[in-house]
Every structure is written in structure tokens, then in C-alpha cells.
Design a protein around this nucleic acid. Structure first.
Length: 420
RNA sequence: GUGAGCGUAGCUCAGCUGGUUAGAGCACUGGACUGUGGCUCCAGGGGUCGGGGGUUCAAAUCCCCUCGCUCACCCCA
């Protein structure tokens, strides 16, 4: 037997219905804020991701990269932001006035060792807003995230916020950090000593106990933000307060990718353990320019749908109601099957979910099947009923049954309304 | 990339100090009920014990390799 590749899974009908439900809610909510749907390619030139993610990270190593027949290097998308920006530039959308707001949903790919709530193919839903610097937009984006989780019914989530400055003030802070940690290098774990070399900010994010005292004493980014960044951050905070959105400032919240600036935020579920982040986002005011476009600010976030569903299950949330056919047609012989199928057509024409039993098994077992599939009604059709032109309609809840003719079948939707 | 635990029926698992035909519960199929579900009872089907190699008179059980799953580290978009 051929098994699916590692870290890649099938979403069986019950699960797929859950994803569809989440996607539908997201699309509706995002549209209320003026975001429009976009679909971007599943793979891109590898260079696009390498340039956007930053060379210092080992993100490149965690991509599914392959050569096409002409020898070009392509990669399955590990995230969507780079593609959205690329599309924005490719279609020269900056020529239009006003910001460009889009949302996307779909699978992403990362070559990592799978573990709890982390797969090689996983699904994200995200928004990107390109072309506006106003802090009020930051508020809007964060608000959308919070509203979404609320709407989905997630009880246990928390917003963490920070500003990591811009290309003018962040280097100053990083220098200060380097100087500080240089003196305390011996007190850091081996990992942090490594991180010290290639991504100093991530040291702040370390969870090891041994590092905590040193991290606590480290300079805080807030003290080094330039005037513009400080002002921006302040407006975001007051905007969130005005909107009654709860959040906490985490001065140690950082990003592994190079392209983030100023506002960054995460939404975490405390029930998830090591993979607690269900939404991550922030500003990326320099990325458009870095990818070869004009200097245009932007912001966005991505939600990890698989993780969200895990969190919902941990909260014992009742997920999307299970689909089942409303009417099950039990057919007792060949005449019954032929007639039963015609009945099904009429019912489906009325928008009633109908399933016909093809197997001609005993009525007893067909009822059993109908019961298992949670059909509310069963129509029983055999040669006798065909001859008579009347069929048995059985209510599976009460056990009550009656005979109905073709005319009644044609209007069955009215009878079942609010009853099935 | 590193480390740990686990692979026995469709599912959850027992059996594992080597010893006849490898078990249970649930699920499935059929019957009691010859054309009426859920409950009950009865019967039945279903397993290369993940795969390969080794030790042995004898391996699900012990050893090695391999594949897979799970979790943690790493990384985190």
C-alpha cells in the first residue's frame, strides 16, 4: 500500500466540513472590512522567498525546493505574504489610489519534522493590506484577528503586541543588545550563544530558565524606538484600547524573519503547548521596496487553521454540524430502485439532501444504514408501492409512517421545512 | 538536523521472563424479526503480529537494520 507522504494528511469529509466552515466565516468577516479574495500560486521562483524571508534565517532550508525541466529553482510556498507582494508589484497595483486589501486561504508547505499541530502541508488564512501607514490600519488588522476568533467561538486566546522599530532605530537597539549580551554570554544557554551570532533578537524569546535572569536585565526595545515609531506604537495601543480589544505588551516578542517592522503581534491559545501561536502578523513596511517596488508600507497576518481546530477541540467546542442526508430512500427491488431514483431527483430539485440505497439489501439493514447516517426520513419503495403509485414515508424519530403519492413528493420541501 | 517512546483485526488495546490453531471490546456482515432502524441475544467474516535479516528445535515475544507514527528539541513564516 502506498501511504501519503510524511507530514501530509487527508482531510476526510468530517474534517473538510470543519475547514469549509472556518473558511466561510473568515471570508465573510474579512469582506466586512473591505478585504477582497485573492489566489496566489502554490509555487514561486525560490528567489522570491529567499529575498523576502531573509538570508540570515534558515528558512530556506525548510522549503520544498525543486528544479523544473529548464533547471529553474522553484519552491512550494512556505507562506503567502511574499506572493501577495509579488502579485501587487507584478500587476502594478500601486498606481491606484488607496490601500490594497486582500485575503487568502490555502495550503502552505514547510519541510520540517512533523509534531503536534505542525505538519509539512498545513493551511493558513491571512490578510494583507498594502499601501497605508496609518496606525489605525494596524488596529483594524488586529481587530479582524480578534473578531475572527471570537466569531469562531474560541474562548481561550490572547493578543500579544510589540514594536520592533524600523530600519533606522532597530539597528541601534540591536547594537545595544549585542553589547549587553556580549558581557553576559556565559550566562546564556548554548542555543542562545548561537542565536547571538545570527539573530540577536531571538535571544529575547528564549524560554530556558537559565537565560531568564539575563534576558530580564536586557535593554528594552521601547527605550530605543525613534520618534516616529514611538508615536506609531502609541497610536496603535490607544486605538486598541478605544476598540476595547484586550492585549498585552510583550517587549520580548520578536520575529524570526527580517521583513517585519514596527507593529508585530501574535494571538496565542494557552491550550496548545509548544505550538501555541494560532495567528502571527505585523507590519512589513520595507518588503515591497526590497522586492523591487516603490517604498510602500504594508501589514498583514496569517492564521494557522489546523492549529485553530486543535485548539477548538481542546476547548470541546462543538464543531460544524455533521452533514447527513435528510432523506434516505430504501429500495426493495429493481422497480423500487428505478422509481426511488426518480423520487430522489424530484427531492433534490427541491434542495433536499437525498441518498438512494442501491444495494437492494433487506429493508431491515437498509433502515439500519439510514439510522447510522442519521437520516431524518426514509422513503420505502418496492414493486408494490410502484404499482400503487404510493410510497411509504417514515419519520425516523417518531417511527410514524404514512403513504404519499407523487404529488406530495413534489411538494415535500414545504412539509419538511423546520422539521428536518 | 538531534533525541525519546511506540507499531498486534477497520478502531482502542491485551498477549511479549521465547513454547500447540494470536485474543478482547467496539465496529462490520447475517440471523432471531421471511418488507421496518435504535435495545437485546446468537452466529460469522476479518490478522504476511509494519517490512527485512539474524539467534534458536521453536520468535508477536530476544538482537540488528529499515520504514512509519507520536512527542520533544531545533526552527517558527
Amino acid at each position: 500500500m502506498i501511504h501519503s507522504p510524511r507530514g501530509v494528511e487527508d482531510l476526510l469529509p468530517q474534517q473538510t466540513l470543519q475547514y469549509q466552515w472556518i473558511e466561510k466565516e473568515a471570508a465573510f468577516l474579512f469582506s466586512l472590512y473591505g478585504y477582497e479574495p485573492i489566489r496566489i500560486p502554490t509555487f514561486e521562483r525560490t528567489e522570491l522567498f529567499l529575498r523576502s524571508l531573509g538570508k540570515e534565517t534558515d528558512a530556506g532550508k525548510q522549503m520544498y525546493t525543486f528544479k523544473d525541466k529548464k533547471g529553474r529553482s522553484l519552491s512550494l510556498r512556505p507562506e503567502a505574504t511574499a506572493s501577495v507582494v509579488r502579485a501587487y508589484l507584478q500587476h502594478k497595483l500601486y498606481g491606484h489610489s488607496g490601500e490594497w486589501k486582500v485575503y487568502y486561504m490555502g495550503p502552505m508547505f514547510r519541510y520540517e519534522r512533523p509534531q503536534a499541530a505542525r505538519l509539512r502541508e498545513f493551511r493558513q488564512i491571512g490578510v494583507e493590506a498594502i499601501g497605508e501607514i496609518s496606525p489605525q490600519l494596524d488596529v483594524e488588522v488586529i481587530e479582524i484577528g480578534a473578531e475572527f476568533f471570537k466569531k469562531i467561538g474560541l474562548a481561550n486566546f490572547h493578543i500579544q503586541l510589540n514594536s520592533i522599530g524600523c530600519k533606522r532605530c532597530r539597528p541601534v537597539y540591536e547594537d545595544q543588545l549585542k553589547e549587553y549580551f556580549k558581557l553576559n554570554l556565559a550566562n546564556l544557554c548554548s542555543n542562545c550563544r548561537r542565536r547571538y551570532q545570527y539573530n540577536i533578537l531571538r535571544v529575547l524569546d528564549c524560554k530556558k530558565k537559565e537565560c531568564q535572569p539575563t534576558i530580564k536585565g536586557a535593554p528594552v526595545i521601547g527605550d530605543y524606538l525613534c520618534e516616529d515609531c514611538q508615536d506609531h506604537f502609541k497610536k496603535v495601543r490607544t486605538g486598541l484600547k478605544d476598540a476595547h480589544i484586550e492585549f498585552s505588551i510583550d517587549p520580548h516578542l520578536v520575529r524570526g524573519l527580517d521583513y517585519y517592522t514596527r507593529t508585530i503581534f501574535e494571538i496565542v491559545s494557552s491550550l496548545l503547548g509548544p505550538q501555541a501561536t494560532i495567528c502571527a502578523g505585523g507590519r512589513y513596511d520595507d518588503l515591497v521596496e526590497e522586492l523591487g517596488g516603490p517604498s510602500i508600507p504594508a501589514i498583514g497576518f496569517a492564521i494557522g487553521v489546523d492549529r485553530l481546530l486543535v485548539a477548538l477541540k481542546k476547548e470541546h467546542k462543538e464543531l460544524h454540524p455533521q452533514y447527513s442526508s435528510v432523506i434516505h430512500i430504501a429500495t426493495l427491488d429493481q422497480e423500487g430502485l428505478t422509481a426511488g431514483y426518480s423520487l430522489a431527483r424530484i427531492l433534490r430539485g427541491q434542495g433536499i439532501r437525498t441518498r438512494v440505497n442501491f444495494s437492494l439489501k433487506s429493508l431491515s439493514s437498509q433502515l439500519k444504514i439510514a439510522d447510522k447516517r442519521r437520516a431524518r426520513w426514509v422513503i420505502i419503495v418496492g414493486g408494490k408501492e410502484v404499482e400503487e403509485g404510493k410510497f411509504i414515508l417514515r419519520d425516523m424519530e417518531s417511527g410514524h409512517q404514512e403513504k404519499i403519492g407523487w404529488d406530495e413528493v413534489k411538494h415535500l420541501d414545504r412539509r419538511l421545512k423546520g422539521n428536518g
